[in-house]
Design a protein around this nucleic acid. Structure first.
Lengths: 346, 346
DNA sequence: CTGTTAGCGCTTTCAC
DNA sequence: GTGAAAGCGCTAACAG
């Protein structure tokens, strides 16, 4: 039934460079050269052909682990995300993976769950595994030190979440501009009383969005109803909690709410629906990120678009550049507002 | 400005076992033993303490690559997903990662995008990197061969998507039961004319769901309006396409539609809304998976719950078991129906 | 209890 | 153009 030789242990099945060399009647190093695209030339055409033939006849598969030990490169790039359940990060990962793929690199992904200890642990694991580089999507203020120190060992780029006062290269969005867009949109619709459901302060995106938003509120003389807390993590439940808090604490409700990300907006939406407060008739709602599902909510969510895919691509390119020894330059992308059904004129 | 010693190359900064040994005045192998939790005992308490002290004074970090070369274990488990954008898979990954973490393993994640060539490539990369095991969430019929052959090298478990006629261990759900649940639910609500928006045939989940659904349709004497095509991939756009197809081809519309997953249901919902066909008033809609956002759609989606987190956990445990040499036994979880607003009595 | 001796599979000088 | 030899950092016999 099974005609192949039975391997005694799991790995005996794997053919090594030596096996190929022996069968091809050449020295292992010749095989190594023949198979290294950067050294095709140094091997006689005919020997190379023979070697390649033997190699795939035997089903030779190079051992990246051994190669990594010698060369220091493992062909692996680590990606640290805060929460894979946030559909905003998956396009970033897509973007990174797609870019890396073209260079034969494979991503290794881990989740920090916005927990500092976990983050430190993950970096340790990744460095232990000698990833060639790391893209951190999950940076929080408290993680700056470990990230910077890890970057002495392998290049690190920050994507999607910036960090203040750091020298680490970043690919991010202009969050202040995003906050301003949200406020300007609402102001243009005639809203005078507005509120923000804030994300955690130690994820630099959020204070920046808040600042941008508030700057326009002030400039245009709007009134900002403050919610006396901010989300622990930018998730649905926290959006829910903050929305409830807003409803309970404010005597005079705002006519528009800016949630610092779409997930929180979803939470807010749920609370509003449950209390029969209509969106957008009674209150307008603006989210942030334009996650894939945003347009399919009811009402479709007005939101600030974060070009996550593009951020991922750029971050991938940046890592590739760093690996090639090129210096990096921070990249800041511009946000744009996607107006949908959840906001309307008062 | 920068007070630490400047490394000449990236890796010179990394302390090796030898460095620790030298500084501690012992032989490298002693350090190796002292640091290996499974061999604490074989080293004198006092030496061990000294070694450990020196180790973290120097900031020693074991090199998994070197260890992997020697021991054959890299402490890494590959996860192949079809599409990270499908929020149904992230809980599975969560589950796997959480289970692995307890054993110090790190997942390496790649996306096949439901493309066979890509899948083959990913497996190759992973084996090249000597992952200790692989969890495949993305299995399609065409991938069976490569998966089985890869499993000769590293243990593979299938999770979330079963495969027909294979000996690979699987952690899946009883999809037929799920299809039956959907149909029974609709029948109980008095629906007589129903339709299915089918997922691709080569992902075994879908024909099984279809079969379960149809079996109840037949048994209860309902009428199934057939849609003359099935989705290429189980995504929003395809759900949209099939729903449009259904509307165009059927003279007598069904009163209830069963979408083979929630993403497709979202697509169907969009088409219905756009045509002002009310859900659930005009037509009831049932999805599958109970993805995190399902309850936040409007109307909240009635769906068949897939315990993805649990599937992930079990798959993680199964891999752990296989790595420990234990034989595995297939696991089939039971689905349950979550009744929400998108379905109602005719 | 600890040191010695071999490599794991591959790349990389350095010779020829 | 190819072979020989050394060694990446670590672990695993085997001695002592």
């Amino acid at each position: 039934m099974n005609s192949k030789q039975i391997p005694t242990d799991r790995w005996s099945g794997s053919v090594t460079l030596n096996d190929v060399a022996r069968k091809a009647g050449v020295h292992p190093s010749t095989v190594s050269r023949a198979l290294d695209p950067a050294k095709h030339l140094r091997v006689k055409e005919s020997t190379r052909e023979r070697i390649i033939e033997v190699a795939d006849e035997l089903g030779y598969r190079p051992d990246m682990v051994a190669r990594g030990l010698k060369s220091g490169k493992t062909g692996t790039v680590g990606i640290v995300a805060a929460d894979l359940g946030n559909t905003f990060v998956t396009p970033i990962i897509h973007g990174i993976a797609a870019t890396l793929e073209s260079s034969g690199l494979l991503p290794t992904i881990a989740e920090s769950q916005d927990d500092h200890a976990r983050m430190a642990n993950i970096l340790d694991h990744m460095l232990s595994r000698r990833v060639d580089g790391i893209v951190a999507l999950a940076a929080r203020a408290a993680d700056r030190k470990v990230l910077e120190s890890a970057s002495q060992i392998a290049p690190i780029v920050l994507a999607g979440r910036p960090l203040d006062r750091t020298t680490l290269p970043q690919v991010v969005q202009d969050n202040e501009a995003g906050g301003r867009l949200a406020a300007e949109h609402l102001a243009a619709l005639g809203h005078r009383r507005v509120a923000q459901l804030r994300g955690p302060d130690d994820v630099a995106n959020f204070p920046r969005r808040a600042a941008g938003f508030t700057s326009v509120v002030d400039a245009m003389g709007l009134v900002e109803v403050t919610v006396p807390d901010r989300a622990e993590r930018p998730v649905v439940e926290e959006g829910q909690r903050l929305m409830e808090l807003l409803l309970e604490t404010s005597i005079d409700l705002p006519t528009a709410v800016f949630a610092h990300n779409d997930l929180m907006a979803v939470g807010a939406l749920a609370v509003l629906r449950q209390r029969s407060i209509r969106v957008p008739d009674d209150v307008s709602l603006v989210g942030y990120n334009d996650m894939p599902m945003a347009g399919h909510l009811t009402p479709p969510l007005t939101t600030v678009r974060y070009q996550s895919l593009e951020v991922g691509r750029r971050a991938g390119e940046m890592i590739l550049g760093l690996l090639a020894g090129k210096p990096s330059e921070n990249i800041t992308l511009a946000p744009s507002l996607v107006s949908r059904g959840s906001s309307r004129r008062v």
